[in-house]
Write a protein that binds this DNA or RNA. Structure first.
Lengths: 192, 192
DNA sequence: TCAAAGTGTTAACATATGTTATCGTTTTTT
DNA sequence: AAAAAACGATAACATATGTTAACACTTTGA
């Protein structure tokens, strides 16, 4: 088995029971791809054809708003999925772009593969349900953070959760992620 | 069949194929309940035991933040579901309260019932997946609105989508929903 | 190796938004 | 019917946050 797929198998095994035979036919649908730093994996306005599973590296999910400003929406670290899941599921143009912040290796899951899995795998529908629920939890937490925490609180929790984030992600992307200006984040960090 | 269940059957039929026999055994698990204006259906910190389907009336989902301020998170109109779905799924204390803004009739779906449906119904897991995806879409749209639209834009779209909302919901709840102060919303409406 | 681009800090200033208080009106409760 | 509570507008003021610009430093790319 392709060693890049080890981790994704573990992740999926956390969701459902999957045996060797199922895994063989299922995993043949995966493909592995690497991207250079700054490369675009998904361009806003295009169809999100695959869910990316980050094996190594780091992705940034962002969009360009009405004023032409880039807004960073999410960072995808190792061993997590990344996509515009709504675009992927509904086959509609993506509202987001996805970009590699470092040289990054991803495993691609296509729509046909995921939906084929609903039939191939005994617990395929359940996997789909749990993935959707997982996505929902992430977004729920995200909204809750926005509603309940100040930018500084969110910043502190972010670096607490990902201590090396400052080494890996330029600060103005983090500011954008926190929905504040880079100048303001710099002030918050240093003046309080 | 209890006539209050007509609509929820239609809604579920939009998600999956369900035959009469399945519906009979499934729908026996529903219960109907009415609440007076201002009554609390779910209290923050308690377990969200049921998903509510609003047959008639209007619900407000809100929470009390660290400073003791009520923040309105969502309005649940007729023929939509309402819950703290994370609390419901994970059986953890709810971060939200749900309150009736008018005399409201709801259909209750318990956790056991929904999960029982994963087995009873041929397409039970699929129903679970589609419900989770639906919840995800709502939250995705919500986040996107927060990131891309100004409070005034969000206000205008809200009254465009629900023209009678001003007759049904006090303006300060709407302001809170838009994450701005009631004073500021009043200014926005009248000065621009 | 050097020029260009990117990055983080700070200052000065402009603007948006929150807070508190007051007032008249409407709605709810007794 | 009367009293109390809720509601929305407005004004005055305080604060938070954005914008622009300048600067030093680092990284990137030819």
């Amino acid at each position: 088995m392709h060693h890049k797929l080890e981790t994704i198998k573990e992740v999926i095994s956390n969701y459902i029971e999957i045996n060797e035979e199922e895994w063989r036919s299922y995993s043949s649908g995966f493909s592995v791809q690497t991207f250079r730093k700054k490369e675009i994996l998904l361009a806003q306005g295009h169809l999100c054809r695959d869910v990316f599973f980050v094996v190594e590296g780091l992705l940034r999910v962002f969009f360009v708003d009405g004023e032409g400003e880039e807004k960073t929406f999410h960072f995808s670290f190792e061993n997590t999925f990344s996509a515009d899941y709504e675009s992927f599921l509904k086959k509609m143009p993506s509202n987001y772009s996805i970009q590699a912040l470092e040289d990054t290796t991803v495993v691609l899951m296509s729509y046909d593969m995921l939906h084929g899995g609903y039939k191939i795998l005994r617990n395929g529908e359940k996997l789909g349900r749990l993935l959707a629920e997982e996505y929902f939890f992430i977004f729920n937490d995200k909204i809750q953070a926005i509603y309940t925490q100040s930018p500084l609180e969110r910043y502190n929790r972010l670096i607490q959760k990902f201590p090396n984030i400052l080494q890996r992600i330029p600060q103005h992307y983090i500011a954008s992620y926190l929905t504040i200006s880079s100048v303001h984040l710099s002030r918050l960090k240093n003046s309080y």
